[in-house]
Design a protein around this nucleic acid. Structure first.
Lengths: 220, 220
DNA sequence: AATTACCGACAGACAGTCGGTCGGTACAAC
DNA sequence: GTTGTACCGACCGACTGTCTGTCGGTAATT
């Protein structure tokens, strides 16, 4: 039986299947056969739409990224929100999902030894995508006298890389207590980096309280 | 033809071959057949000594790590060297090699998209191995009034993760100029983190001058 | 005679290729 | 406005080559 669809629809079906399977079993753990079965297409079809298995991953990351970064960018541009609140909101948007809530699941399963390549690619996208969104907010903060640094971009880069590695990845195993002390130290360090008054960023600690599980009151 | 050797010798022959091949062609790009050919043994022999291909990688990382971290630890413990010099020396030892110079080559080829898993494992080892070596030196610095921070360990963690990601990996493409400005900002940021006097760490910039190519005057 | 190191044929799985097929659409002819 | 036809994009699935890991057996060593 043969079902014909528009190319972009098929493409997205494949990406949807891959998203779920990669999340469950990792990239290496997922065979193209698995994807074939889930979508209900033949091998040739898959390779008609994508040139390799890795190509699927790249497309998936790009799709997910466009969502997430777009949402974050949107919040970042809203100058009616006070600087510190806005930073918090932006980071929330980055951690939780890309609006529709469809891209949430992958993020929860990505930090596994198996998915190293995917993880690395996402990491790269985060590093080049997030600091440019946050930096303008920091600059506003500098104008307002809340922050003080010559290197807002580099600070954001450092903060993003560190937070992403320690708090999102499982690079270092932590009990909840250790994690809490890391958060405290982190906030204190960020205050120093940004030249903010000591304690002025403590309010962002709530972000780490529930970690990535938070999903109650986002009215987005 | 059948050549019998002591298990540990064979093991190391295999690791030597794997080290070179992984460096040249990456982990995924290297087949167990390649290793077999290079060492001159049969499949069964390889799997007599290692339980899987990944097991080879793990063993290799562990071997390399023991060398590098050992050398760094050795320098770190030498209290006759002034604090800042010592930090510099330790970091040099980490970047350059593990003493014998045998493990240098891998490090040069590891930062490639192919070797994601190996890279991740090494990253993990660095993150859990390096800060504990540097922290006591920072503490000495605090006692001497050079530094001032409540969180020496977390600072080192942040610094190590950032430097390793930005300067060692190719996570973000940089021209030499951009790189230089990153180094400047980095040093300035580290000074703030450690509560060091502004400019007091500028001397470590030499480390980044020639990047990882430096290998002239280490009298080790 | 027992243990340790080694061999190589083999099974099973998987990514990617290729020739061929089918459905839809545009458009001409009637 | 119905029928004929030419074309193309989407789709199929058998096949190839490669690779990892296994297993039964063999040679050296103690």
């Amino acid at each position: 039986m043969r079902i014909v669809k528009e190319a972009e629809i098929r493409r997205n079906e494949i990406l949807d299947a891959a998203e779920e399977l990669f999340g469950q079993k990792g990239f290496d753990g997922t065979s193209t056969g698995d994807i074939l079965g889930k979508v209900g297409i033949a091998r040739g079809t898959l390779y008609y739409h994508f040139k390799s298995k890795e190509d699927i991953m790249d497309a998936l990351i790009e799709r997910t990224n466009a969502n997430i970064l777009g949402a974050a960018q949107h919040i970042a541009a809203d100058k009616s929100i006070p600087v510190i609140d806005r930073i918090l909101r932006v980071v929330m948007a980055l951690n939780i999902s890309g609006g529709n809530g469809s891209s949430t699941e992958i993020m929860e399963h990505i930090h596994k030894p198996q998915n190293a390549l995917m993880h690395q690619k996402i990491q790269k996208a985060i590093i080049s995508g997030v600091p440019p969104i946050l930096t303008p907010i920091i600059c506003e903060g500098i104008e307002q006298g809340i922050f003080n640094t010559q290197y807002p971009y580099e600070c954001m880069e450092m903060v993003v890389i560190y937070a992403n590695t320690i708090f999102d990845d499982d690079m270092v195993e932590m009990t909840d207590e250790v994690r809490m002390s890391r958060v405290l130290a982190f906030i204190s360090n960020v205050e120093r980096l940004l030249g903010a008054e000591s304690g002025s960023l403590m309010s962002v600690m709530q972000m780490f309280g529930n970690g990535e599980e938070a999903r109650d009151e986002d009215g987005e």
